[in-house]
Amino acid sequence: MRRSDQLPIELRPAGLYCPAGDFYVDPWRPVERAVITHAHADHARSGHVHYLCAAAAADVMRARLGDIRLQTLDYGEPLVVGRARVSLHPAGHVLGSAQVSIEIDGHRTVLSGDYKLQADPTCAPFEPQRCDLFVTESTFGLPIYRWPDSATVIDQIRNWWHDNAAAGRASLVFVYAFGKAQRLLASLADGPGPVVCHGAVEALNRVYRAGGVTLPPTRAVDDGIDRAALQRALVLAPPSAAGSPWLKRFAPYADAFASGWMQVRGQRRRRALDRGFVLSDHADWPALLQAIDATGAETLRVTHGHVAVMVRWLHEQGLDAGAFETAYGEQPGGDG
């Protein structure tokens, strides 16, 4: 067994670094070579010289970061970088999200990035990887976070949309523009009215469609949708649109937020929204434990989220657990 100070991954000011391959994974400061797990803004930042990501993520990466020097790998395809053998494996989080596997002299490290185990029609499902060191996220690393079945939540949203349409008001759902919005869209075809997307959401829809993900037809507000149709519409907008004049045209509407944070009543009430739907692109507590267990790893490092809780819990299970203080989003404002 390796001692902690000899881990093949170390924390540096710019991010998590692999000395054997001289590259970073999801660095938060500009570096020479960055392997990116997925295109959410807190994991994929601009300013690096060379990028490496999963082939399925390439379009989103370019849409978000512009003209970058990007190399891609198919899931499972190996690449030798220095002394390290790198491969990417589906993380089930959003389109193109990957776990990063790094093999050095028969020792395997896997960095999870963000991941979930629930089914998602818009991305490849999470594939558990056996490894010696597993670096896991812990966004929802508390036992209070246990997701209801996603089909149940989708039904709740659909029923709510139908009720609102019957009452003559639009259904406005705040969702993260990249990932959650498309997951909802793909699950909510054939509702009582049109689906209208905020520009930030529609931009990502185009990338998903171009990448071969089937999404139901959506409309933009400037399509000239008549008022009657608007009152039956499902409107998807990013949380940043809250309070913006863009929403004015949909009045009267009922509003909701779809996120794992909605599991706790206080979070729902604080937002003063009509509804909170518990739908997350992250693993809940049981899924985190299940994923960790499936790796068979004896050494664990925990990143963003409830780091201290996860570390202590794993430690009490007899595992070598520690923390990496990363700069990824972890508060209720982050992607949930």
Binding site: L142, P143, I144, V264, R265, G266, H306, V309
Partner: peptide
């Protein structure tokens, strides 16, 4: 930890 997070 859970109680603290939920508050109720």
């Amino acid at each position: 930890e859970c109680y603290e997070r939920v508050g109720d």
